[in-house]
Simulated assay, not measured.
Amino acid sequence: MFTGIQATFIGGDARQLEVIKKFIELDASVTLIGFDNLESNFTGAVKKELSLDVLRDTDTLILPIVGTDEKGNVESIFCSNSITLTADHFEAMNPNVSIYTGIAKPFLKEQCAANQLRLTEILDRDDVAIYNSIPTVEGALMMAIQNTDITIHGSTSIVLGLGRVGMSMARALHALGARVKVGARNPKDLARIFEMGLTPFELGGLADQVVDADIVYNTIPKMMLTEQVIARMPHDTLIIDLASKPGGTDFRYAEKRGIKALLAPGLPGIVAPKTAGQIIANTLCRLVTKHLANREGTS
C-alpha cells in the first residue's frame, strides 16, 4: 500500500490514466497537473496548477513517457495550456523525491543531477521493453496488413536486429508463416537466429538480402536502410521502422524511389494504450514499493 505517499502526475497520454488508477487503488494521495480537460474524474485525486508548493510536498513525481523536451516542456493531451518545468521547479523539489519517466532527455537529466534528485527511466529496463514488445509487434503487423496487398503468410520478411523487439517480431512473423530473415552483427545473435529456425545474415550484407524483400522491419536506432540498400529493394517493398526517432531509414530516398517507408515509434501507446499503461503501472508500483522498503530499512 502507498498510504501516506504524495504522488504527483504531470502531463501524459492515455497510458498515464492506468498508472493513476493503480496509485489511487494503493491509497496514495494523488495530485494531477495538466489534466484540466480530462472528462472522467478520479475519486481520490485532486487537480492542481503547477507550483513550487506542490512540488515541495511531492514524494513521487511521475512524468510522461517522453519526460520533458529540451526546454522543460511537458506534453499532455489532457491540457490546452503549456506546461513547463524550470530550474526553479527542480530546486524547490523535496530532496528525497523519486522522479519517474520513460526516457529522459538531457534537460531533465541535467536538472536532476544538478539538484541531486533521484531519476528513473523505466523504458531502459529489460522487463518493460520485453512487455512493450508485445503491443509493438501487434501494431507492426497491423501496419503491414493495412499497407500491403499480400498476406504475411508466405511473404519474405526481413527483421533488422535481434533485440527485445526484434526477437518478438521475428517469432511472430515465423509463427504466421512468413519466410523470415534476420540481420544481426553479434555471432551469438546469428547463432540464436539459426536455432530459431530462421535465416540469419550479417548486417554488412544487408544490401544483398533485400533484393526479394516484401516487408522490412527495422528495430535498430541507427541508419541501416541507406540509399545504397533501398536502391536494391523491389519497388513494392514496405519498410516499417520501429526504431526510436529519427529511425534508421533514409526516408527521403525511399520516397524518391516510390517505396513506402513508415516510421512507427511508440506503438504501444498508440495501438494498446490501456495495456501499455498497465505495464507502466505495474512496473512503477514495483519500483516505488522497493524504494519505500529500502528507505524504511535505512531509517
Score class of each variant (00 low, 15 high):
M1F: 09
G4S: 11
G4F: 04
T8W: 00
T8C: 00
I10P: 01
G12C: 04
D13I: 10
A14K: 13
R15A: 05
L17W: 00
E18K: 07
V19I: 15
I20N: 02
K22R: 15
E25V: 00
V30A: 00
G34Q: 07
F35S: 03
N37F: 13
N37Y: 11
S40N: 12
S40E: 13
F42Y: 14
V46Y: 04
K48C: 04
K48H: 07
K48E: 12
E49K: 13
L50E: 03
D53S: 11
T60P: 00
L63Y: 02
P64H: 03
V66M: 08
G72A: 13
V74S: 01
I77V: 11
I83K: 09
T84V: 13
T86K: 11
A87Q: 14
D88M: 08
E91W: 06
P95L: 03
N96R: 15
I99F: 02
Y100S: 07
G102P: 06
P106I: 13
P106G: 12
L108F: 14
L108C: 14
Q111N: 13
Q111K: 15
A114S: 15
N115D: 09
Q116M: 06
R118Y: 14
R118P: 00
I122Y: 14
P135E: 02
V137P: 02
G139D: 11
M143R: 12
N147W: 11
T148C: 14
D149I: 09
T151S: 15
H153Q: 14
S155C: 15
S155Q: 12
V159M: 10
L160N: 06
L160Y: 04
L160E: 04
M169C: 05
R171D: 08
R171W: 03
A172D: 06
H174N: 14
G177R: 13
R179Y: 10
V180M: 04
R185G: 09
R185L: 11
N186E: 14
P187V: 13
L190D: 12
E195H: 11
L198A: 07
T199A: 05
F201R: 07
F201P: 11
E202C: 12
G204E: 14
G205V: 07
G205E: 12
L206I: 15
L206W: 08
A207Q: 14
D208R: 13
V210W: 02
I215K: 14
Y217P: 03
T219W: 04
I220V: 15
H235I: 10
L238W: 07
D241I: 04
L242P: 06
S244V: 09
K245I: 08
T249Y: 01
D250A: 01
Y253P: 03
K256P: 01
R257E: 04
I259D: 01
A261T: 05
P265K: 10
P268Y: 08
A276K: 02
I279H: 04
I280R: 01
I280N: 02
I280Y: 10
T283R: 10
L284V: 01
L287S: 08
K290T: 12
K290A: 15
N294E: 13
R295S: 00
E296F: 02
G297T: 00
